[in-house]
Nucleic acid binder design. Structure first.
Lengths: 254, 254
DNA sequence: TATAGTTGTCTATATCAATAGACAAATTTT
DNA sequence: AAAATTTGTCTATTGATATAGACAACTATA
C-alpha cells in the first residue's frame, strides 16, 4: 500500500538557488523557523558552522552570513571558540476571535504592552473601505495609524478607518487613552464584535520595516477585519500587519 | 491635533537594497500583491516598464526581470509594442472556522476541487504531535501527506497525524475516498470540531515549492490545528501550508 | 600541556544582480 | 505616412552573492 514510504528528509528543509532570495537569507529564515518551532531551547547551541554548511549544501561562509544577520537581529549570540547560541525569542501567540482586542489575551506572555498612535488623517473613503463600512464611496473617513508594542518591541502595525461624521475627534481620544475600546466608549459604543477577518501574508514593505523594526526580506501576516456593533452596524475597518517572525495568530473561542 | 499629517506615499510601496532579497523579486511580489488587492482588474494594462522603473527607483532592466518572472508564473502577459497585461488570478478565499473541512465553502470559487494523498507512513509521535493528540511521547502515529487542488492548481499542502492504533488503515480509506471526513466515518467518527488553530507564515521550503508548484521565494501561510470529537477527544493533528499568492484565509463563523 | 573543535579574518575567484546606454521590432496615435 | 510609445535584445560595467582555501584566535577537553 501507500505505507512506510516517504523519504523524510529531516523536515524537508532545503534551499533554492537563483530564486531572487539569497541563500544566506533563506538559511536565516529556516533557522528562525526552527527556533520558533521549538527545535532549540533557550541558550541551546546551534550546530557548528561546518555542520550547517554541509546540511544545507553550501559553503561555510554562506552560513556565516546567515548567522551574522541573526546576530544583528539579536536572535543569536556567537562566541569564538565555543559556539553559537540561541538567545530565544519565543513568538507571541496573538489571540484572534469574535471579541479580540489588542492587549487582551497577551497576559503572561509579555509584561508590558501598549498601543501607540503614530498618525491620523481625514480622507475620502477608498472603494475597499467604503464597502467595509457600508458608506457611500468618497464619504469622509478618519484614518488612524497605530503600532502595538509588547515589552518595548513592536508586534503589530494597524491602520483603522472610522466614519468621520460619527467619530469626529476619535484621534484625540486615541492619543489620550491609547486604547481603541476606551476611545469608542466615548462615542457610546460599549461593545463591538469582529464581523469578518481575512488573512494573508506578504513580504514587508518599507513602511513595515520602519514601524515594526524589521530586517529587509521579513514576512508580515496581514489581517483585514470589520468590527460591528452587536446589532450589526459597521463601525471600524482595519488592516493589521504582524511580523511573522515574532507573532503567531491563535484562532480561539470559536 | 494629530490630524491631517501622514505623508501618504501612495500605499507606501517601496523597496530595500542589500536585503538578501533581490530587487526584481521584491518588485514581483509587490505587483502580485497589487493584483491580489484589486488594484488591477482582469486584462488591465500594467504601467509601462519605464514608469514602473521610475516609481520603484530602479533601472528598467530590473523591472523587466520582475515582469519576466511573473510572465513565467503565468500571472502577466507581455506584448511587444502594446504593453503588459494582467491575466488575473484572483486568490481563493479559504474559510476557516470551527467546522472547516477542505472543499467545503469553496463553492462558486472553483469548479473542480479535490484532495490527493501523496504519501503515508507510520512513525513514533514527535513531542509536538504527542502533545496535540494527548498521547505518550513515542506512541505510534499514522502520518498522511496530502495536497488540495482547485481547478487543477494546488492550493494547500497538509500533513496530518492520527493515533495509529485507533485509526489503523486510514491511509487506505483516504486513498480510496479522497476525503478526511469520509475516511473518519469508517472509524465511527461522524462529527469533529476544530479545537485550536495557530497561524504563522514563512518562506516556502523545497518541498513546498515542489508540491504546490511555486516559484522560489514564495510565501506560505501555515496553520497548525487540532481536531477533536464533540466530547473533546483529540483525533487529528494537522499542519497545512497554503501558498500566500493564491490563497487568503477567511476566518468565519466565529 | 597538547589536541581537537569552534568562531574570526584574510585573499582570491566565479557567478548573479543591477545599472547604463543604444537600438531593433511591434503597435498605437497623430 | 510619420511620430510617439512600448516591449525585445544586445553590449558593457559595477557591486553583491557564493565558493574555495588557509590560517589566526579562542575554548573545552583528554
Amino acid at each position: 500500500m501507500a505505507g512506510q514510504a516517504i523519504v523524510d528528509k529531516a523536515m524537508a528543509n532545503s534551499i533554492e538557488r537563483r530564486s531572487g532570495v539569497s541563500l544566506w537569507r533563506q538559511i536565516a529564515d529556516q533557522i528562525l523557523h526552527s527556533i520558533a518551532s521549538g527545535d532549540f531551547t533557550e541558550n541551546a547551541a546551534l550546530p557548528a558552522e561546518m555542520a550547517l554548511a554541509e546540511r544545507y549544501g553550501v559553503n561555510r561562509h554562506t552560513v556565516r552570513s546567515a548567522i551574522a544577520a541573526l546576530v544583528q537581529e539579536g536572535v543569536l549570540r556567537a562566541e569564538q571558540g565555543r559556539g553559537t547560541f540561541v538567545l530565544s525569542r519565543k513568538r507571541l501567540s496573538y489571540p484572534i476571535g469574535a471579541r479580540t482586542r489588542f492587549s487582551a489575551g497577551l497576559q503572561g506572555q509579555a509584561s508590558e504592552r501598549r498601543s501607540v498612535l503614530l498618525a491620523s488623517a481625514i480622507e475620502p473613503a477608498s472603494r475597499r473601505v467604503a464597502e467595509g463600512l457600508r458608506l457611500a464611496k468618497g464619504a469622509n473617513v478618519i484614518r488612524l495609524e497605530m503600532r502595538g508594542e509588547a515589552d518595548g518591541q513592536p508586534v503589530s502595525r494597524a491602520t483603522a478607518w472610522f466614519e468621520a461624521r460619527r467619530f469626529a475627534g476619535i484621534e484625540a481620544a486615541m492619543a489620550e487613552t491609547g486604547s481603541i475600546t476606551a476611545s469608542l466608549e466615548r462615542f457610546s459604543v460599549s461593545d463591538y464584535l469582529r464581523q469578518s477577518t481575512v488573512l494573508s501574508a506578504r513580504h514587508a514593505d518599507a513602511a513595515d520595516l520602519a514601524d515594526l523594526d524589521l530586517q529587509p526580506g521579513a514576512i508580515v501576516l496581514v489581517t483585514v477585519a470589520v468590527n460591528v456593533t452587536p446589532d450589526g452596524q459597521p463601525i471600524q475597518f482595519a488592516e493589521t500587519r504582524f511580523p511573522a517572525e515574532r507573532v503567531e495568530l491563535k484562532l480561539s473561542a470559536l
